[in-house]
Nucleic acid binder design. Structure first.
Length: 467
RNA sequence: GGUCGGGUGGCCGAGAGGCGAGGCUCAGGACUGCAAAUCCUGCUACACGGGUUCAAAUCCCGUCCCGACCUCCA
């Protein structure tokens, strides 16, 4: 039996996962800066790390999963001004939008979801330590900077050299000792929200909150720190810099998910609304969108297209259809199981695409078994497929996705359709195919699909009426 | 300038020296009153040019193209 191995951005190699605390896993994922509605790139990160979490949990680890919300930063203040809302109202509005999107895609809520503004105390403590250490300085204008030249090491994650970096636009910043120093804390400008500190009123810089909150909930050292590729520099480098300068070990390994791209390019907000999660959920169901986002390997770019999404949804419906049929035949829902091959695929740095090939194989065997009536094979296939879908967070029987139709309604509908099907059967019996097809077409127009099977006709609700 | 990813069949998407990943689409077949569903068969690809090797999508050298980050970013 293989054991879990994961790619580590720091070493750029796949290593066996060895938890700091036996039987446990601690994960910190950089969540959203809540300044706009989530697009599928944001949510892909959530889905990828949710798959990691589910697999680790299934593998027996007690997983503590922290995903933060950054609810104060430059962009939030800017957007709040644009939308003519208090900054906190804007942040909450989009925090809810993210929560809704996570829920729609069955991304499990984190163990805890700390907000930056709820951890000002911890940030001040961290800055105090850094200033006492001599690692940080407060030039007197309310800002606090980390002095990067004094660090023992810096930029190890992105493997860059300090002097090779292009200078930021604010390089002329007179209060910095070195233009590469970065702000832990920003002194308050007029009209901006602020919190009191020993160095003046101000607000958090972008990076400080993650170091403070990771320390607060996971301690000086934890197993995995995750986020999107674009966070490697500067965000994660600066988290490392702050945390190590404060004397923490910080993250043992780093995982980064790749982007969703369009036409080869990273998604940007200029693309408009079309790739927002809620927009896409008008076209496909949450479970289908999740299937699509989770289907590529987390370290590979996922090239978005509407056609690819549609195809992916079609493929998923085939799988779902088999599970429904298997449930009817078996008389009970499949019991999730994992084959050796599936386990090995997932243990190999979450080789989801390989796992999906196994699902496809099981599906083919299962469908053949439906034709031949081999219940044993139907059950095995269905169990393994459901087991895989469960880990991918795409189990169609998971109540998180909501039942497709309520029990009472289904019963009533079932009776109604049964009446129509009785009429159709009678028409077919007397070879009046015009009449029987008229019934089928009529039901079809109402969104009810009829299929004739050796066990008799079965009906289902066609899903994509909105398309 | 520095750092880092890519280019795989009609489309999506794995793999990383040798046994055709897989899916979707399309075409043909089986089944069917017809559909639908399902199964079977077919479509034998790895940017370009060299090289190494018994063997290269995979390694090496060179070239072209695309993208990302460099203190706003999933």
């Amino acid at each position: 039996m293989s054991s879990l191995a994961l790619y580590d951005t720091l070493s750029r190699t796949i290593n066996p996962f060895v938890p700091i605390k036996n039987g446990s896993a601690s994960i910190y994922l950089c969540g959203a800066t809540v300044q706009a509605p989530p697009h599928i790139g944001h949510i892909r990160s959530g889905v990828n790390f949710d798959i990691l979490r589910r697999w680790m949990t299934k593998s027996g680890y007690a997983v503590t999963f922290i995903r933060n919300v950054t609810d104060i930063d430059d962009k939030i203040l800017h957007k709040a001004h644009e939308e003519n809302l208090p900054w906190w109202a804007l942040a909450m509005k989009y925090e809810r939008a993210f929560s809704d999107a996570y829920a729609a895609l069955n991304v499990l809520p984190p163990t805890y979801e700390p907000r930056a503004t709820g951890h000002i105390t911890q940030m001040i403590e961290l800055m105090t330590t850094l200033i006492e250490n001599g690692a940080a300085y407060a030039p007197g204008n309310g800002d606090v900077y980390l002095e990067v030249r004094k660090l023992n090491s810096y930029l190890t994650l992105s493997r860059q050299k300090l002097d090779d970096l292009l200078l930021a636009d604010d390089a002329a910043e007179t209060f910095k000792k070195d233009p590469r120093d970065f702000a832990l804390w920003k002194g308050a400008k007029a009209g901006e929200p602020s919190w009191p500190t020993p160095w003046g009123d101000g607000r958090p810089g972008w990076h400080l909150e993650c170091s403070a909150m990771a320390y607060a909930y996971l301690g000086e050292s934890f197993d995995i720190h995750g986020g999107g590729l674009d966070l490697i520099f500067p965000h994660h480098e600066n988290e490392i810099a702050q945390s190590e300068a404060a004397g923490y070990v910080f993250a043992k390994s780093w995982m980064h998910n790749a982007w969703v791209t369009t036409s080869g390019e990273k998604m940007s907000k200029s693309l408009g609304n079309s790739l927002q999660v809620m927009q896409l959920l008008k076209k496909v169901r949450g479970i289908e969108l999740r299937w699509y986002l989770g289907s590529a390997h987390y370290r590979s770019m996922l090239e978005f297209s509407q056609a690819a999404l549609d195809e992916s949804a079609t493929a998923f419906r085939r799988i779902e259809s088999f599970l429904n049929r298997a449930t009817e035949i078996l008389g009970h829902q499949p019991n999730p199981q994992h084959s050796q091959a599936f386990t090995e695929a997932m243990n190999d740095d979450l080789a989801v695409p390989l796992a999906l090939a196994l699902v496809a194989e099981s599906l083919r065997l299962g469908n053949s078994a439906v034709t031949s009536g081999d219940k044993k094979v139907i059950e095995t296939s269905a169990n393994e497929i459901r087991g895989a879908l469960e880990i991918l967070g795409c189990d169609p029987f998971d109540p998180a996705f909501g039942l497709s139709h309520g029990g009472d309604v289904t019963a009533a509908l079932d009776g109604t359709i049964a009446l129509a099907l009785t009429q159709r059967a009678a028409a077919r019996e007397r070879k009046d195919f015009a009449a029987s097809d008229a019934i089928r077409d009529g039901l079809s127009a109402l969104g009810i699909t009829i299929e004739d099977t050796p066990q008799g006709p079965r009906w289902s609700i066609s899903r994509m009426e909105e398309r």
